[in-house]
Computed example of a mutant assay.
Amino acid sequence: MAVSTMSSDIPPYQVQPLISTILDIHENSDDPFSVEVKCVQALGSEIYVGCSNGDILLFALQTNGPHQPESYTLVSRQVLPTGKAVEEIVLTPCISKALILSDRQIFFFVIPSLELVSSIKPIRNVMAFAVDHQHIARPMPSVDSPMPILPVDFCVVKRTGIVLYSLRESLSWIKDIPLQGGAFLARRTGLCLCIADREQYTLINLDAVTATPILPISQVPPEPGMRPHRPMSLVVAEEEFLILSWTGTGTMGVFINLNGDPVRGTLQWPSHPLSICLEYPYVTALLSDQTIQVHNVESQEIVQEVPAPPLPSANEASLKVLLAAERRALTMSPSGFLVPWQQQPDKQRLVKVNLLGRCAEPGGREVIPNVAGKT
């Protein structure tokens, strides 16, 4: 069998372009160069791209022949009814749905066909929304699995409150929670919601309906004429968030539990990241100079720094388009995506594995060598 060498000279990430350009897709439009990638999500060997003109593009990994590497090919294209920019895409593979935010509305699509679910009306007046991360992580249903398909819970933040929904084949309202001022960012795990307004992060217990202020987005007053720093947060584990706060000389990443207490150590960046993503145990950040820094969640140390790649623009989607989620080998994970890499076979070697005999006692050491022709 072939396994990864796990050698220390193989970095956690290999940077390579997966989709070279979307301009060719829009070459017949009035101004193809005005179309930009606004958000990206990946699932297995599929990449979903949201564009500034309301297009939703699905790319899938295709085999080009025995002597050519695999590459991503456009297999589906849909246009939102709004014709406005696609601001966020959230994939829920366990119910084969995609929640797509555009023009303060959430639309529901079937994946991978990208058919609009016309039986569910769009949710309007949305400032932010958050799907329960524990439900996003559920695996796709299997034909052979007897497990029932469970609904997916999510929150919608509006200007005067938070609305809780449950989604499967239809949309069900759960309850409303009053909230003044709304929020511009929301992340959820279980019954805990982390939101951010213009000034600070707040934890909300959706069961007890309590709010706990946590940390300011910026710990120093903004400089005149400078845009305020964007709030950024990730769900790290079932009971843990990572939130980013500008200190005046850099950005600090703080790990907090569901009570708002700090855990682990902190992460440090020299500037406020343009985008961050998590492929446990790595937190990857795209900085303003387009440098990519990779931290290890467990040690909080920088384990890789990639020089500025030749990006067309340093927008939020650049990180997920260009980072090949190669955890030391060609891999696929529920939150990652499949990446073709020509060098990957060179990083593998044959390994002899010893097998326990069928008659071995639990914890016993009776060993049968792995010899050709024997199992």
Rank of each mutant, 00 (worst) to 15 (best):
A2I: 11
P17L: 09
I19H: 12
S20D: 14
E27A: 14
D30N: 12
K38W: 05
L43Y: 08
G44D: 13
G50Y: 01
L57S: 05
N64H: 12
G65N: 09
Y72P: 04
S76T: 11
R77K: 15
Q78P: 00
A85L: 06
C94F: 07
S96Y: 05
I100Q: 08
I100P: 07
L101R: 11
Q105Y: 00
F108L: 02
P112G: 03
E115H: 14
V117A: 08
H133Q: 14
H135W: 12
H135L: 08
P146D: 11
M147I: 06
C155I: 01
T160P: 00
E199F: 10
L203M: 10
A211E: 13
T212P: 01
P221E: 14
M226W: 06
P228I: 03
S233H: 02
W246P: 05
W246C: 06
F255K: 06
I256R: 03
L274S: 11
L278S: 10
L287W: 07
I292K: 12
I302M: 11
E305M: 12
V306D: 00
P307G: 08
L311T: 05
N315F: 01
S318N: 02
L319E: 02
T331Q: 11
L338G: 03
Q343H: 13
P345C: 04
K347I: 00
Q348T: 11
L350T: 10
V353N: 11
N354L: 13
G357F: 00
R365F: 06
P369G: 07
N370K: 09
N370S: 15
V371L: 14
V371T: 12
G373Q: 10
